[in-house]
Each structure stands twice: as C-alpha cells, then as structure tokens.
Design a protein around this nucleic acid. Structure first.
Length: 344
DNA sequence: CGTCCACGGGAATTGATGGACT
DNA sequence: AGTCCATCAATTCCCGTGGACG
C-alpha cells in the first residue's frame, strides 16, 4: 500500500503546495526584488501551528531559486538557536557555506557573512518569537543584501525592545496571517499525499474527509494520522484503509506525536512532566516546584524553570496553564482523568 | 494592612573555549 | 607550554512590583 514514505515525513515540501496561493504570492512578492539583484522586503508570517507557515516560507525560497539560481539562503529554527551568536552561526553556515570551528565570536561571524555575501540573500527565522534578544535583527539589517522571513505563532512585535531610531530603519513590509485550514483544504492536502505516496485505491475520499474533520485544522496532525492509518491497515494485511480505523488512527497519531516530544525532553522537563503525571488535577507553581526539586538531584532555580522549562513544555503542548485568581495552575494536556482506560 | 503567589529587570557568577602574549 | 584575557551561554541571586484575599 505504501509507495513512498518520504511524502509523509514532517519535512516533506510538496510541489506545488496546496491551498496557500494568496500567502505564497505575498511572500514571493516580497522576495521579488532579488530577481533584479536588490535586497528583498522583510516578511513576517504568523498563525497557529500546522497551518503551513514554514512550508510556505521554504516553498517561496524554492520558487525564487528557480528564477534566480543559487540565491544564498539559510534556515534558522530559533527554538534550537535562540541567541544572537547561534543565529549568526547558522546563517554563516547556511548562507555562505562557511565551515566553522565549534564556536566563533559574534563580530567574527558578522564579518565573515559580510565579506562572503555578494548580492542578495534570504534568511528564514522560524519560531522567531523565541529569540532572546532582537539585537540580531539589527545585525541582519547591517548586512547588505540580506532580508528575512520571520515566522511566529502570534503577531508579535519583534522590535519591542529595540531603540526607536533603530526600529525606524528596519521595516517589515509584509505581514501575512495564516488562518486555520478548513476541512476541505486538509482533505485536499491529504489527497495529494495519498496520490503521491500510496498505491491506487488505498484510501477513499470519505476516509480522508473523516481524518480531516478529526484533525481540527492542523495539517501536521492530519498527515501523521494518515500515516498511522496506513500502518495500522498494513498490519492487518489490508490493501486499503477501512473507515473503522480512522478514529483510532487519529487518536494514536496524537499519542505518537506526544510520545515523540516527551522522548526529547531533558531531565528537568522530564521531572516536571512526571510530577504532573502523578498529580491529579494539576498543581500551582509553588507546589510544582517543590515536588520537582525533590525528584531531581540537581534542580535549577524556580526562576529559571519559569523562564525556560515551563514555557517550553507549554509550547510543546504537553502542559496547560490556567490562571486562577492570582495563582497559576499547571496540568497535563490531553489526559482525561475522568475516565479510566480499561486494559486492551 | 500583611501575606501569599507570581512576575520580571538587571547584575553577578560560573564554566567552556579560543586567541594573544610570553 | 603556560598564563591571561575576551566572549558567550547558562544559571543564579537580589529585589521591587502588583494582584488577590482575609
């Protein structure tokens, strides 16, 4: 049944992309000056997860490189590389193909990029709301020819803590909002993936529409669910996905994504997660910290937890936070305490 | 009010790394 | 080879602010 598994990977970049024509046009417009050898306009993309922001950004750069060969570009995920130095390091590697020793000073990196970039270049700053400081945006502005595509969940002010006189010199010409996909668009996306990656007749439209409905506008979840459904059907020796498997597939896909996330947590985040697994109904911050501190043999301070690990768990959609008259309550996401799951 | 909980600015410390100087 | 200094990231420490509540 499965012909090409690559189609279902997270990093698969479809060609062409589905259901985001307007967004694509905005981004390609912003990049258009590069075709004449000029610096592009900066773009800012925002919207919830799983709605194609990263895909559009990457696809727009791909389009550009079809027009203008070898435009240098770099992709930076600011969740992993959120300091000024790391961002510039990534850019130096991606943009000018620099092979660097383990660490280089910030000014050295800037010089390196400047002296190796001749003409326009593009940087994708994914998860840009995770940048520690925004100083790096100023650095990028200082590099002739360089422009960026910023991506974030919410429409944030990237320049909030920059000087006004600096801000006035940096512009974001395009702000593109991504709304949640409709069911029909998700169905269309799934249909393309099925066509490209599965044997003929492996799924029918009803199955795809059903997956789309249960995935609540999140394309990533939907695609994962389809992949899980394929696997489940294959294990039963079937050549097509029966409709009865869909609900379980969607549920398993959620579980699979969650499990994968948990496996990537560090010891502090894991300790927090474990504490919350055991705590029914959630905990207030102070309690949570007290129990974390007991469980971990080298605990970090509450301050650090609050600034780093807790927001991260929240971003991974593992925990949720709720204000309750001056105190915060942390609890696990997607765990239904009201219902005990029977074995098998 | 006083207390509890939580937020967050800002300075300080620690530790790794790498380059310059001797 | 040995010492010293700069840079940077990670983490902690100190402390003032503010809301909710009794």
């Amino acid at each position: 049944m499965l012909r090409d598994g690559e189609v279902f990977r997270d990093d698969h970049l479809p060609d062409p992309i589905v259901g985001r024509n307007r967004h694509m046009n905005e981004v390609t417009d912003a990049l258009a000056p590069i075709e004449d050898g000029f610096r592009a306009e900066n773009v800012f993309l925002f919207g919830p997860s799983g709605v194609g922001k990263t895909t559009v950004a990457k696809a727009a750069v791909r389009e550009l490189r079809r027009e203008v060969l070898e435009v240098p570009y770099a992709y930076v995920n600011c969740w992993q590389d959120h300091t000024r130095n790391r961002v510039l390091d990534q850019i130096a590697r991606g943009l000018v193909g620099a092979t660097l020793p383990r660490s280089s000073s910030t000014s050295r990196l800037i010089d390196l990029i400047k002296s190796n970039l001749h003409g326009p270049g593009v940087v994708i700053l994914d998860e840009a709301d995770q940048l520690r400081g925004t100083e790096v945006l100023y650095d990028l502005h200082e590099i002739r020819g360089l422009s960026w595509i910023g991506i974030a969940n919410r429409e944030i002010d990237l320049f909030a803590d920059l000087d006004d006189r600096i801000t006035s010199r940096i512009s974001v010409a395009y702000r593109v909002r991504f709304d949640t996909y409709g069911e029909d668009t998700i169905t269309e996306i799934l249909s393309r993936r099925a066509r490209d990656g599965l044997g003929p007749g492996a799924v029918n439209d009803d199955v795809l529409a059903r997956i789309a409905r249960l995935s609540e506008g999140d394309a990533r979840q939907a695609i994962t669910a389809l992949r899980v459904a394929v696997r489940m059907a294959s294990q039963e020796g079937l050549a097509a996905i029966p409709e009865r498997l869909v609900e379980d597939a969607v549920r398993n896909a959620e579980q699979e994504v969650r499990q994968k996330t948990i496996s990537k947590l560090n010891t502090h985040q894991r300790a927090l997660h474990e504490v919350l697994v055991e705590a029914e109904g959630g905990l207030i911050q102070k309690e949570l910290y007290a129990r974390y501190e007991e469980r971990h043999d080298d605990p970090v301070t509450l301050r650090y937890l609050r600034e780093n690990h807790l927001p991260k768990l929240e971003h991974y959609n593992l925990i949720e936070v709720e204000w309750d008259r001056g105190t915060k309550r942390y609890s696990l996401v997607g765990v239904d305490h009201s219902e005990s799951t029977p074995e098998l």
